[in-house]
Lab assay of single mutants.
Amino acid sequence: EEWMVEKALMVRTGLGARQIESYRQGAWIEGVHFKRVSPSGESTLRGTTWYNYPEINKFIR
């Protein structure tokens, strides 16, 4: 699984929702560690946020 939603990321990493938000707003790079995608497939600020687990795992190492 490369891309996953927040709940799956929480299960895989043990991070809480606030921790994920903090990383997203600070250290993680949009387009690398996470992306927002609307149902139409376009990038957007209001779409579902998807997280790239392999890239996040590399960051944590």
Rank of each mutant, 00 (worst) to 15 (best):
Q19W: 04
Y53E: 04
Y23W: 07
Y23H: 05
R18A: 15
R24D: 01
A17P: 11
G16Y: 08
Q19Y: 04
G47P: 13
L9G: 00
V37K: 06
S40D: 14
G14R: 05
G31C: 06
G31M: 04
M10T: 07
E30I: 05
P39V: 13
P39M: 12
N52R: 02
I20L: 06
R12V: 11
E2P: 06
I20S: 01
L9F: 04
K7M: 09
W28Y: 01
W50I: 13
A8K: 07
E1M: 08
T44S: 14
I20M: 04
E1K: 08
L45E: 14
R24Y: 04
Y53W: 11
M10S: 08
A8H: 11
E21S: 08
S40Q: 11
V37H: 07
S22P: 01
E2R: 07
T13S: 05
M4A: 02
L15W: 08
R18Y: 11
E30C: 04
R36K: 12
K35N: 04
R36Q: 14
G16H: 11
I60R: 03
K58Q: 07
V5F: 07
V5D: 15
E1G: 10
R18T: 11
L15D: 01
F34Q: 01
T13Y: 03
R46M: 14
S22V: 11
E6Y: 07
E21K: 11
G47F: 13
R61A: 13
K35P: 01
L9A: 02
P39G: 13
Q19A: 08
W50A: 04
R12F: 08
V37W: 07
P54Q: 10
S40L: 11
R46N: 15
H33S: 00
I29H: 05
S22I: 14
V11Q: 13
E42A: 09
S43D: 13
A8R: 08
G26W: 12
H33G: 02
E6T: 06
A17K: 14
G16P: 06
T49Y: 15
E30N: 05
N52T: 02
Q25I: 11
G31K: 03
R12L: 14
A17D: 05
G41M: 08
T44L: 10
V11D: 14
R36H: 15
R18G: 14
W3V: 00
K58G: 05
R61S: 13
T13W: 03
E2L: 08
K7P: 06
E2F: 08
L9Q: 01
G14L: 04
T13F: 05
I60W: 04
R61G: 08
R36M: 14
N57T: 13
L15E: 01
K58P: 02
S38L: 12
G41C: 08
V5T: 15
P54D: 11
T49R: 04
K58D: 07
A17F: 08
Y53H: 04
N52E: 01
M4D: 02
M4K: 01
S40C: 10
L45H: 12
G14S: 05
F34R: 01
A17S: 12
G14Y: 03
V32P: 01
M10E: 05
L45I: 11
V5I: 10
T48N: 07
Q19N: 04
I60G: 02
G47L: 11
Y51L: 01
S38G: 12
